[in-house]
């Protein structure tokens, strides 16, 4: 049995009275890419946001069942520590309207890193996302002046600065053009050597290209979960088959 970096057992989530996640048993394996696919509103982003407690910000959400991060129950982990360990990249590139440098040191300030380490950490993270050569002379330019793809890379780098173990990506390419998308996908494959990655995508080709494991969700249920090739070539559930062959979605 492989090790789950993230795990849910009988996870139920409600928005008010709306049943958003239904008895979800799910596992994200360490140092692999797991993707969640499914039509809009199926709960895939909601499930992703359970792992760094971003659902807490939304009013009127209640959760029961268990979520384990590194085999520890979520509620035992301090929320600041949790969000350091489980980083998140969002759908739209969302750098702060500050300089590139200030974006990168933000998390370092929040988590009390030593100022003398800033430069090394920034360089390491920018190299990891392949931005270093392009951006090393532009550290003081406004982050919002970068191209969309570079902004998204910067956002990934910003997450990496605080040394997470797990990275959640919520449709990270949906605001990008196909070439930029391809580059971000290459980046994800690079990153999985050191990080555990969970990606939500509505792009099935993307899931097939980058992920080792795929979960298919529909109306709050995790219908099927397994190795990506199996899900895409021999799905067990006819609803999965219907979705990946484009009969609905």
């Amino acid at each position: 049995m492989m090790d789950c970096a993230l795990k849910t057992e009988k996870l139920n989530l409600f928005y008010g009275t709306f049943h958003g996640l239904k008895n979800v048993d799910f596992c994200v394996y360490r140092n692999a890419i797991t993707s969640l696919i499914g039509p809009s509103g199926c709960g895939k982003s909601t499930l992703l946001r359970c792992f760094n407690r971003m659902n807490d910000i939304i009013d009127d959400v209640s959760v029961n069942g268990s979520v384990l991060v590194n085999n520890r129950p979520l509620e035992e982990i301090d929320i600041i520590e949790l969000r350091k360990k489980v980083g998140m990249v969002f759908q739209r590139p969302n750098p702060f309207p500050f300089s590139v440098r200030e974006n990168l040191v933000y998390g370092l300030k929040v988590h009390g890193y030593k100022r003398s380490d800033y430069d090394d950490i920034m360089e390491r993270c920018l190299r990891a996302v392949g931005l270093w050569d392009d951006i090393k002379d532009k550290m003081n330019t406004p982050a919002l002046s970068l191209s969309e793809e570079m902004k998204q890379r910067l956002c990934v780098a910003r997450v990496l600065t605080v040394e997470p173990e797990i990275i959640l990506l919520d449709e990270p390419c949906s605001a990008l053009d196909p070439i930029a998308t391809m580059k971000i996908e290459e980046l994800m494959i690079e990153l999985k050597r050191f990080y555990t990655i969970l990606i939500v995508t509505h792009n099935m080709q993307q899931a097939a290209r980058v992920s080792d494991y795929t979960g298919f969700m529909l109306l709050g249920d995790l219908i099927e979960f397994g190795e990506t090739p199996k899900i895409f070539t021999a799905p067990q559930d006819e609803r999965t088959d219907g979705y990946i062959t484009g009969r609905f979605g």
Partner: peptide, 20 residues
């Protein structure tokens, strides 16, 4: 979304308010 991303990086509400 700036507040949300700040929280996702582990910042508290006050840090988010003051720094973002």
């Amino acid at each position: 979304n700036l507040r949300i991303v700040s929280h996702s990086l582990g910042a508290t509400k006050w840090e988010t308010t003051v720094k973002v």
